Amino acid sequence: MSIETVVLSKDQLDMLMPLIVEQQHDCGKEVDLDTTRTFFEGLVGHEATFQIVAVEDGVAVGLAMVDPIPNLQFADNVAYIHDVYVTEALRGSRGIGPLLVASSFVEAMRRGYEFAEGETEPDNSPARKLYARLAAKLGVGFKEVDSMRYLLDLRPAIERAHSEPEYLDRLATPRLLSRLSARP
């Protein structure tokens, strides 16, 4: 069984809904499936906004949302990666969260974003370390803006992709990410 990541399309919404129900219940919210589906139908398929889904055997097991955010310093070239969620049964065991985040960075670069931001809780040290390790592995700049927000400069990886067309395809693969957890 292997995990693959895909950019969510409208024909995959039925696959995503059980994961969204689980995520909302984890947050203590009740889910209105019609409203939730309508919300995602309005998001899916736009150039600037996208969703990365981790899929195993046709079942959605993880999700990361990416939206453009205004940033006075960088104009509109910032992709905001948020609401990263992995189904509870697989959380922490297979590297799905890192795969979702790395895939989000790669797709952001493909769509022309030069910067990406991520955010986590101040006491979430595994997530904080993940952003730093991913930046190093992807060859992009990394800056902790405050205790919870991170800014990644994607331009070095974009430049490398110009000279190595297969570079972006190699990123965000389970092989790359399995090396992330290896201690130097």
Rank of each mutant, 00 (worst) to 15 (best):
E114C: 12
L90T: 07
G92E: 12
P184L: 09
D169H: 05
V21H: 00
E166L: 11
S93M: 08
A116R: 07
T120L: 03
R133M: 05
I3S: 02
Y85L: 06
S181Q: 10
R94H: 13
G28I: 03
I20L: 05
A75T: 07
I158R: 11
D32C: 01
F40I: 01
V44I: 07
R149H: 14
I96S: 08
Q51R: 07
H46A: 12
P98W: 05
P156V: 03
D14E: 15
Q23I: 05
D153V: 07
M65D: 11
R175V: 08
V101G: 07
R179L: 13
V101N: 10
E144A: 15
M17I: 15
V7N: 02
S9M: 02
P174L: 08
L19T: 11
R128Y: 09
E47C: 02
T87F: 05
I3M: 03
I96V: 15
L19Q: 11
H25R: 12
G28Q: 04
G139L: 01
R170H: 12
C27D: 09
M15I: 15
A157R: 07
I158E: 08
I52K: 02
E144L: 12
A89P: 06
S125M: 14
I69W: 06
A127C: 13
E47G: 05
P126C: 11
K137R: 11
V101F: 10
V106Q: 08
A116I: 07
C27I: 04
L177Y: 09
Y150D: 00
A108H: 03
A127L: 04
D76Y: 08
G58K: 07
Q24D: 10
E56A: 15
L152V: 09
L90D: 14
F39P: 00
F142M: 01
Q12T: 00
M65C: 10
F105A: 00
E30M: 02
R149A: 09
D83K: 14
H25F: 06
R160K: 13
Y131F: 15
R175L: 09
E41N: 10
P68A: 10
A48F: 08
F39S: 04
L171R: 00
K10P: 01
Y131C: 02
E114P: 00
G62D: 09
L19V: 11
G28E: 09
A116V: 08
L16K: 04
K143W: 06
P122C: 09
G97V: 09
Y167F: 15
V66D: 06
Q12I: 00
L152K: 00
A172T: 06
Q23D: 04
F142C: 10
N71M: 06
A102T: 06
R37P: 01
Y85C: 06
G42H: 07
Y150V: 14
A108E: 06
P165I: 05
R111V: 06
L180Y: 10
F50L: 03
L154S: 04
L99N: 11
P70N: 08
V84R: 02
V106G: 00
M1L: 10
L134I: 05
E114R: 13
E166R: 06
E4S: 14
E114I: 01
I69E: 13
S2T: 15
P98M: 02
F115E: 00
I81D: 01
E30R: 04
F39Y: 13
G95F: 08
L171I: 01
D57A: 14
L90P: 06
L90W: 07
A182M: 09
E56Q: 15
H162W: 04
V53T: 13
E107F: 01
T49A: 04
R170V: 05
V59L: 00
